[in-house]
Each structure stands twice: as structure tokens, then as C-alpha cells.
Amino acid sequence: MEKFDKLTGIAAPLPMMNVDTDMIIPKQFLKTIKRSGLGVNLFDEMRYDQDGNEISDFVLNKPAYRNAQILVAGDNFGCGSSREHAPWALLDFGIRVVIAPSFADIFYNNCFKNGILPIVLPQEDVDRLMDDAARGANATVTVDLENQTISGPDGGTIAFDVDPFRKHCLLNGLDDIGLTLEKAAAIDAFEVQAAAARPWV
């Protein structure tokens, strides 16, 4: 997994609530057996018309946001399907940070597995960043994971919370499986005890 420590980039505003993972990456793109190459179909049905032409007023089609690395969105971002294709598509497009007042659990979790930092902020902070983001390429935002701060174009900073373990993994680009296998002895011991207690499993 690619590390995440600090990023200065363009933030794109997507002021919608309940953005579901079907919207982020529609089902026809889940037929891939790879993780890469999904960026071109990120938000496909909002981004392109039936004939595949770009819809010019969709945020990521606007010249100012084509290289956005931060997405600012509404409540319950990433709800619905567990498809990890959603963070894969965001990452492949270049998005490394998603900021919203709330996230759906599975999507939130999937982000951390892919080097994407999801940040939960109070609505008023999201509103402020949404305003900043509306200024497009003229206003870049800096996200600093080590110090857990977001700096807007006007100098103000916003602090955010993140789970210490997840922060550690993201800062160091750590592979979960490798970390867990270090605890193989605990898993072995558990299996022996569970097999005795619940032999039918």
C-alpha cells in the first residue's frame, strides 16, 4: 500500500448526501479481475452521458478539478455495496483524501486499506471546506496526517481525529496481512481452544 503522510492538492466539492458505491463505480465495471484502471469510470453515470460523452457540469469534468486529489462530500458517503472497487476507482483517478460529515462503515474501512484517508468533520467545517473547494484550482488544501490538520487557502487550520492504529498503518504504508501474521501464534492458540469448545464449527 502506498504511504500517506502529507498532501497539498486541489479539493473538489461534491455537495450531495448518501453518495453510494453504485454511484462511485457502477456495477458494469466490477467485472474486472484487477485493481487498477477504474479511474476513468469513477462516477461514470454522473460523469458521462449515454453515448460516453463527458457531462460538462459534473465537477470532475470541469477544468479546475480534473487533477483533484481531495473530495469534499455530504453525509453518509460511500453507503451501499461493500465493493472495494469504489476506493480503487477514487485512487486510480488520483483522489487520496475524502472529507465528509459521515461515512458508511465498510467504505470507510476500505479506504484505509488502499492508502486513502477518509476524514470525518463537523458539518460546519465541511461547509467551510466546501466553500474553499468551490474556488477550484485557485485554492489548494493541505492535509497533514502526522499532525492531523487540514489547512485551507486562507491560512486557517482544522484538526481532525483518526484511529491511531490506522494512522500508523497509513503513515508507513503497512500491509495488514503481514502485521496479522506476526500474531500467528495467537491465532493458532485460539484455533486449538475454539476447536475444543465448538468442535462442530
Partner: peptide, 18 residues
């Protein structure tokens, strides 16, 4: 409950979930 593909790989490899 549902999990993402990275977690599918984690469960396949370790039979556990973080």
C-alpha cells in the same frame, strides 16, 4: 457482515479480521 476485497484476502490468509 460484509467486508472489502482487501479484507477478503486478509481472511483467506489469516482466518481473522482486524
Amino acid at each position: 457482515h460484509g467486508i472489502g476485497t482487501s479484507e477478503v484476502e486478509h481472511v483467506l490468509a489469516t482466518q481473522t479480521l482486524i
